[in-house]
Write a protein that binds this DNA or RNA. Structure first.
Lengths: 342, 342
DNA sequence: ACTGCCAATGTAAACGTTTCAAATGTTCAT
DNA sequence: ATGAACATTTGAAACGTTTACATTGGCAGT
């Protein structure tokens, strides 16, 4: 009774054919109760467990979806995966998880593995959604997929995201409204994240609309939490800023920490805003001011959307969800500029 | 060229038999270079993609592992999954991800699904590792598995964890060393997490060893971040504590937030310590003092361990990794007890 | 020229399902 | 009795692999 018994054995035990056993499994209503019971009893007795791989080989669908995220180490993605997993569970779908570590090279490999697994569809967060061999591959193979967090310019792919430029724009404007005129953005590398670039664009637009000159940028590697050195020239000296707009909440939290290490208070000396809306942002002090996106719901929606695509009931389409500026404590009035730090 | 071409078509195109194609895929060295090239060319031409399900049906192994965690929303688990995924990727293994939401009911269902998928092995974080039908099932089916974070009393299962009681003990002792005599533990529900219980035991032991009376407990639901009300009676009034030992870092961060909302400073009025060592703890202010476990590495090790079990090269065994008390700022000297709060 | 060997390849039988078409009853009106 | 209509059930052929075993042909040794 260790494990593997087959439909054939169950059929033998129950005195029916494997076709009947199959029907008991897949459409018990078409089989007389008495037979169903007999077969079920045999299954229990033999400890039968259907071999999904047998079924998958035979059927067109595998009832599995592939998920690719940059990393689980960032709560944004972890939370979205939580949403995906939850929705998948409710649908009886199996989730195959991969991560790219923000490396476009690995994206292609990971997706290829997923395709070999014959997943019914994919949910992806890519480094760059507009010019990406992964998308070409998926298009060519004609397999349903939904981009999550990516906000592609092309309109022939499904995506669920917030308006990245706009969320950065709003956050920047909130700072400007507090009197900040000397701002910089802290952002992840553009080649690793198109969101990063889009958010920087929004930042620049807000500055330009307010007549505030060129956008300054502090670009850092992903996964980086040590921002003391990268931010040094932005926080000290004659060009010191009074506000930092960060392209992600993780960066914002790291930036606040770096400010502290430079002996600056937030928001007293420097205001810091993030984008993403990770849960921990609401618990720390100062409470992080962020452009919040409904991360977990986005994951759930992505799966629902994907299901539609798989069933052929939906067309690729971009869903831009509203973001919401949180009332955080990490942003305050600009420190008067006549008392520069050194 | 949409997608699905089979080995048979490749064989036809290359003018060989499917056996040869299979050999080219699995052991190219046993096939003359010239033939390998011809077959590979046919594969490229036909856009061939091996159907893993065909292979899985035939072979004993599926080269996939199942992962079950309580939730992705807690960075501890997300980070461990990151470690697992990374190691799995290096091994060419596919990861099937499920989460239980801390619900023992769902644990069984999730594992059952994983088993239907014929995973080669499992990595699990269970609510309760000592008396759990999931473990009985896995034992009965004789399928390799490694518990992660769980620290079972039984010695016949493989596990990777820290010494939970000890880490709570050490944290508590660190507070006592700072003069704290009135402490309470904030912990997740024991029925949802045996770690929680073990850590509470360590907490109690430390108090008892220091002759400090009964252990007080504030038990909260998992995922809970609103601790203002639950902690009210611990933070105010005649029985107010000067220190909170929290069973997880997430709880500790939430507890610090709750203290703030009660108008108490950390560590000025109340010291707060956590257990887990999530990354964000090191970035917040005050820097969270925690009993740190190498979360991501534990995930990687769990996979390496599991691989050994699958190959039959290793025996189930408990790995207790050392934890490390971080030098956090969230713990300070006890506020003098002659000025009680109300 | 025969034998024996070896390298290269092919044949065919699984693996555990699903599902179509066909077979076997059963019931009932004629 | 006969056969139509129907409810149950079955046989058998896939699905795309892997692999034990058989076949082929070339070549060296005698």
């Amino acid at each position: 009774m260790t494990s593997k018994s087959t439909m054939r054995e169950v059929a033998g035990k129950a005195g029916v054919s494997i076709a009947t056993v199959s029907r008991v499994i897949n459409s018990p209503d078409e089989v007389p109760t008495e037979t169903v019971e007999r077969v079920r009893a045999a299954m229990r007795y033999l400890n039968y467990r259907p071999n999904i791989n047998g079924r998958r080989l035979k059927m067109a669908q595998t009832r599995s979806v592939g998920v690719l995220v940059p990393t689980m180490a960032n709560p944004v993605f972890a939370t979205s995966v939580q949403g995906i997993e939850q929705a998948a569970h409710e649908d009886g779908l199996t989730v195959l998880l991969t991560s790219s570590n923000y490396d476009p090279q690995r994206e292609l490999g990971a997706v290829s593995t997923l395709l070999n697994n014959r997943v019914d569809g994919l949910i992806l967060t890519l480094a760059n959604a507009d010019d990406n061999p992964v998308i070409d591959l998926l298009k060519a193979e004609n397999i349903p997929f939904v981009l999550l967090f990516n906000q592609p310019a092309r309109t022939d792919v499904a995506s669920i995201s917030v308006d990245n430029a706009r969320s950065a724009y709003d956050m920047t404007q909130a700072m400007i409204a507090q009197g900040h005129t000397s701002l910089a953005m802290v952002a992840g590398r553009f080649e690793s994240s198109d969101r990063s670039k889009q958010r920087f664009d929004g930042f620049g637009q807000a500055l330009s609309d307010a007549g505030l000159g060129a956008a300054r940028l502090c670009q850092v590697g992903f996964g980086e939490t040590e921002l003391f050195t990268p931010l040094k020239s932005f926080l000290t000296g004659p060009d010191a800023v009074t506000g930092l707009v960060c392209s992600t909440d993780m960066l914002a939290i790291a930036a606040i920490s770096a400010c502290r290490d430079h002996g600056l208070s937030v928001p007293g000396d420097v205001s810091v805003g993030g984008i993403d809306g990770i849960a921990v942002g609401g618990l720390i002090s100062p409470k992080l001011c962020s452009a919040i996106q409904p991360t977990q719901e986005m994951g759930q929606q992505a799966l629902a959307f994907l299901r539609g695509l798989i069933r052929g009931q939906a067309n690729p389409q971009s869903l831009i969800l509203p973001h919401q500026l949180s009332t955080g404590e990490s942003i305050g009035p600009a420190r008067h500029s006549s008392s520069p730090r050194l």
